[in-house]
Design a binder for these strands. Sequence first.
DNA 1: GCGATCAGGT
DNA 2: CACACCTGATCGC
Length: 643
Amino acid sequence: MSAFEGRMVEYPTISIDRFDRQNLMARAYFLSHCHKDHMKGLRAPSLKRRLECSLKVHLYCSPVTKELLLTNSRYSFWEKRIIALEIETPTQISLIDEASGEKEEVVVTLLPAGHCPGSVMFLFQGNNGTVLYTGDFRLAKGEAARMEFLHSGSRVKDIQSVYLDTTFCDPKYYQIPSRMECLNGILELVRSWITLSPYHIVWLNCKAAYGYEYLFTNLSEEFGTQVHVNKLDMFKNMPDILYHITTDRHTQIHACRHPRVEEFFRGNRLPCGITSKNGTPLHIISIKPSTMWFGERTRKTNVIMSLKPLCRSFSKSTEAKYKPLGMLKRIRTTYLEPEDEDEDLFDDSQLMPLRHKIPNQQTFKPPLLSPKPEPQECPGQLKPNIASCRIDSVESSLLTNFVDCEESNSEDEDQSEIVTSFHGDLNFLPLQQQELDVDIPEWKKFFKNNADIPDDGSEYVISSTEAGTSQSPRLFSDSDGDSTHISSQNSSQSTHISEQESQSWDSQSDTILLSSQERNCDFTFFNKSGSRVRELVTTCQLEQNISGPKDTSSDVKDRAQDVNTASISGGATTVSCEKDATEEEKNLLNLSTSVDSQSSSDFEIPSTPDVELPKQEHLQLLYAKLATGESIVIERKHSTSSS
DNA sequence: GCGATCAGGT
DNA sequence: CACACCTGATCGC
């Protein structure tokens, strides 16, 4: 839950994403997107009563959010009081105190947030200045630069405060692949699986209510296979999504859910109950989209215990593996791309056109209703961003993943996640080692030489339950997410980002208030205290610290940066895999690997001092070994690396 | 019975 | 342990 309590300093009479407590008095409400943790109090009796008494109070949100909200009958009492605002259409709103008659005007503009269908950021302009509330968002590099309403002329608007979601504004998320990278990775993984036979099924382990539609539509378009979901009535007026999902369980791609999924998978059964096709048991892999997975794990647990047997099954020598892993784990390598070091946060260089996929297989027909041809895209999520990624960063993340094998919970980065998840799974199911040799995932396949690795961070968990072979692993998982919180400016604890220790940013991140008023640039941040510390941060400092030494010299452009910073965080999705593969599957997956990566954010986090960046060939080799289950002995190519 | 909170889980 | 939930127990009304 967000630490943001709903109100902004500049416009305290409006409430955003919180509807309880003091927010019951608000003159107007704003909902950035339809995730439960941003809807606290929204259907409480107290608010309902307030509405009945205060006829001028409205809820403002995007048209898609309104649609999603009203699909749930619990919120139908809002129906007459919701005002859907078009994206990027400044709208003046009168904030009226019904008791005193006092009135204040504010202009709000909705900006696409890219977090889930309908998600937006709110830009407020009024007598108390211009402020931006980001909500949960995921913007690709360059997207902020494209937003006309954040600019005036060639300059960035003078934004007084940014209420920023800082969930991923943490050094441990030093590399989150772009949506496109992740998507491509998932597509290849799914392709490699479902083409094996009609009995090879992919299950997408989606946690949140919304936010995966982008994945569904792309999978569906790519393979001509609709994705099975529990319900789709909320998308009844969104043909672009509706076409790609189905309630018909007879499909190879599932995103259905059940409260007790694990039980189902233990029985080699999908959450929708399907267990076989024509009497033939299914081979299921699960893919868990997750952003959190990209975070650097710090806990070291006894995963090693599980890893050993695993390694043994692949090769004779086990010992050598651990040390390297430990070392690697500490490596936080992030390559700073020279050309990305533009001091200008609003980088125009990446203004690639938003790509909209054209269905290559229209074999299926729309499930319900009459399809409207116009592609009304849900803002954000449906727009794949094309980002360029560097090989190095992916590799480094691979390493990290590899390292992660030590941890009990599998969470890693990038494509490497797969690897991690794999091990993580094994941890949970130590008994299955016999089958391990059969189940070796060959991740190479998903890391092609060409740079088409996906971007939204999804993690594959390949779990394959299945027949012939073994009932092995189910999914392991991790989570991901983005979230938001606010902050106000009294902070007690603070830490300087420049210290660069992940501890300094403990996980209580949320929404942070960035005020450009204070240009002293003292970057304080949330602390581990658990309390939601609110901090006043100046954007310029934020930029500097985050982007590292690179621009110390540069003249910081104050406001330009305010907004840019926002593009830092946002949801991502990862892929982690667990699976057991047959010989055939292994062969299939066994391809050449070469990783490409692209940087996905507008700025980069500097690498940890004194850490040696792994060489590409080295990583390549390492990765290849990992994929084939060979023992891994890391040679010290550079003084710093481990043995 | 409902809501809110907490604990615990994925 | 961040996410975005879900379930179940407990308490209060």
